[in-house]
Amino acid sequence: MTEAVRLDAVSKVYGKGQGAVAALREVSAVIPRGSFIAVMGPSGSGKSTFLHCAAGLDVPSSGSVRLGGTELTGMGETELTELRRQRVGFVFQAFNLVAALDVVENVTLPLRLSGARVPRGRLEDILRRVGLEGRAGHRPAQLSGGQQQRVAIARALITGPEVVFGDEPTGALDTMTARDVLRLLREVVDGLGQTVVMVTHDPLAASYADTVLFLADGRIVDSMSGPTAEKVAERMTRLGAWT
């Protein structure tokens, strides 16, 4: 299985001198293509920094990040912006939809911003997969929270990205709606061969992943394959005692 993302000895330090804070400390990880990876850890463990460095949203202080065969280290902001637009999808806790645009316009926004053609077949397929065929002309205010997050997932998928990064994508949803969204992310991996990397604090959300990476104090301290909510919760309890 080929690598979607590779981090080698990645460190990220914010600030200088006495006020310097190390958010990541020599983190190395390989995200296999076509896998669903959850990233967990206590508050301040470096989860979001891990995601931002892996996705090219933030530049490591040292170490190297590769997306597919592309080395991100040393890229300028313009190059990174182009790379993120073409090769990476994002789903955040806040849905980040444009209120004045309908579902189709929100989903196709990344393509239109880059001047790319909107492939009708792909658009229809994605709307069907995320369960929004009958909502194409609706604006965000006419949709439930779960439907809005489905629009955000469809928008992340429309460019055919190599990796979809989710930052607490179910954090603003009730439990039942969160399960629907997690099932959809699982389906995207199994049905489309998509790679998903998701930061979460929720053991139930992590149980939908193939592998969970546990961070503490800026380091990967453990990993778990075939996770269950119970096993993840137990591991997180121990992590809390270590920090």
Score class of each variant (00 low, 15 high):
F95M: 13
F95C: 07
F95D: 03
F95S: 06
N96Q: 14
L97N: 11
L97Y: 11
A99R: 15
A99D: 12
A99H: 13
A100G: 09
L101V: 13
L101N: 06
L101F: 13
D102R: 08
E105C: 01
N106P: 11
V107I: 10
L109P: 00
L109E: 00
L109F: 04
P110S: 06
L113E: 00
L113P: 00
G115A: 07
R117C: 15
R117I: 10
V118P: 11
R120F: 04
G121S: 06
R122T: 08
R122F: 15
R122E: 05
L123K: 13
E124K: 13
E124H: 08
E124R: 07
D125L: 05
L127R: 09
V130D: 07
G131P: 13
G131R: 08
L132I: 15
L132M: 13
E133W: 13
E133P: 05
R135E: 12
R135V: 15
R135D: 11
A136T: 15
R139K: 11
R139F: 15
P140H: 10
A141R: 14
G145M: 07
G145L: 02
G145H: 01
G146L: 12
G146Y: 04
Q148I: 03
Q148C: 12
Q148S: 06
Q149R: 12
Q149T: 04
Q149I: 05
V151R: 06
A154R: 09
A154K: 08
R155L: 11
L157I: 03
T159W: 00
G160F: 05
P161V: 01
P161M: 02
P161S: 00
V163F: 02
V163Y: 06
V164K: 03
V164Q: 05
D167P: 09
E168S: 06
T170K: 08
G171D: 08
G171L: 01
A172P: 00
A172R: 02
L173K: 05
D174E: 07
M176I: 03
T177W: 02
T177S: 05
A178E: 08
D180Q: 09
L182N: 01
R183H: 10
L184Y: 00
L184A: 03
L185P: 00
R186K: 04
V189A: 04
V189M: 00
V189F: 00
